[in-house]
């Protein structure tokens, strides 16, 4: 088994205008690794956008001077993204609601975590020096 390699390592200010560019870099890596097209055009872009906007808006609270780091690791069987903010600990997993129930489908918010789980093979919250959201996308 080959050692995982770092495919992407970028840091962006806490401003949502940087999200699209980072997502495009990640999607390009996904395509170059020849993951299924749907994973590169839908699963990864949407889930990574959710993780980034969560880190910028909630984790870092759009603070000047705080950054979000995105690191992608490629292993034999997966593409793994760590999205790291500098904010205080919060239990993102506790906020998971089902936005598809009749009561919730008209809600304007609350689909972010649902989409990350639906579109990624694994979503983890790791508390380190900030919050780390780890998104795992299997190659197959």
């Amino acid at each position: 088994m080959a050692k995982p390699r770092v495919a992407l390592d970028v840091e962006i200010p806490s401003d949502v205008k940087y999200i699209e560019h980072v997502v495009e870099l990640a999607a390009r890596e996904c395509r170059e690794l020849q993951l299924p097209a749907r994973k590169c055009s839908l699963n990864l872009p949407v889930a990574l956008t959710e993780a980034l906007s969560n880190a910028i808006l909630r984790g870092n609270a759009i603070s000047n001077g705080k950054h979000v780091r995105v690191r992608a690791l490629v292993s034999d069987d997966a593409l793994i993204f760590d999205v790291v903010d500098e904010g205080p600990d919060f239990d993102i997993m506790a906020e998971n609601i089902d936005p598809t129930t009749p009561d919730n489908v008209m809600r304007e918010e609350g689909r972010g975590l649902f989409l990350m789980h639906a579109l990624m093979d694994r979503v983890e919250h790791i508390r380190g020096r900030g919050n780390v959201i780890r998104l795992t996308l299997l190659r197959e």
Binding site: P45, V46, E50, S53, E108, E109, G110, R111, G112, L115
Partner: peptide, 17 residues
């Protein structure tokens, strides 16, 4: 359109209402 995230979907719901 390429993709839409949860906040984009939320805006569509809001506009619909």
């Amino acid at each position: 359109t390429g993709y839409i995230d949860s906040s984009g979907l939320g805006v569509l719901v809001s506009l619909s209402k």
